[in-house]
């Protein structure tokens, strides 16, 4: 059986205790998107300020467990200041790290995942996010870890489809 230390790495607890980019952005101009984990009632709100395809600011609010909160916190730190493309590449890499079990849990977005044919970065390139790797040993917690990432994807999709609209 996997031990608690696989799950609750020090860096995860650090992000949980002092979450980065916590708060809200005025929306609009920022884009506000909500995610829910119907299993446990956790909710997350991601605020994205995207200018010229760059995520210039991001804030996270909502409530959740240490895994969902720390994952969101690390995600916000990792995408802030990066382009939408980089953010999406990071989503792919993160989700592929989580996908060992999630494939069985059924994801809504399995189709789009491989479609872009873009490169998937290995755990090395995920930086401190790699600390969340231990979550895959606790299948019910994978949804906690991916909640903010699915919400981010939804937000980026919405921003792009709004931009594409005439």
């Amino acid at each position: 059986m996997a031990g608690l230390e696989d799950l609750y790495r020090e860096i995860i607890l650090d992000h949980y205790r002092s979450p980065r980019n916590r708060g809200e952005l005025p929306a609009p101009p920022a884009h506000r998107v909500e995610g829910f984990n119907p299993l446990c009632g956790d909710e997350i709100v991601v605020f994205l300020d995207v200018v010229d395809r760059v995520v210039v600011d991001v804030k996270i609010s909502g409530q959740g467990c240490s895994i969902s909160q720390s994952s969101a916190s690390m995600m916000s730190a990792a995408i802030k200041g990066h382009t939408v493309e980089q953010a999406r590449a990071l989503v792919r890499s993160f989700k592929s790290m989580m996908s060992i079990h999630e494939a069985h849990l059924g994801t809504e977005d399995g189709g789009t995942e491989q479609a872009a044919g873009a490169e998937i970065l290995g755990p090395d390139s995920l930086g401190e996010l790699a600390a969340l790797q231990g979550v895959v040993k606790f299948p019910v917690r994978i949804k906690c870890a991916t909640l903010s990432w699915n919400t981010l994807t939804q937000g980026l999709d919405e921003i792009e489809s709004e931009a594409a609209a005439p």
């Binding site: 608690l4 609750y8 446990c40 409530q63 959740g64 467990c65 240490s66 895994i67 917690r141």
Partner: peptide
């Protein structure tokens, strides 16, 4: 202030 998921996870061990 600990999330119930985390409480239950630790208790499970």
């Amino acid at each position: 202030g600990v999330h119930p998921h985390d409480v239950a996870q630790v208790l499970d061990t």
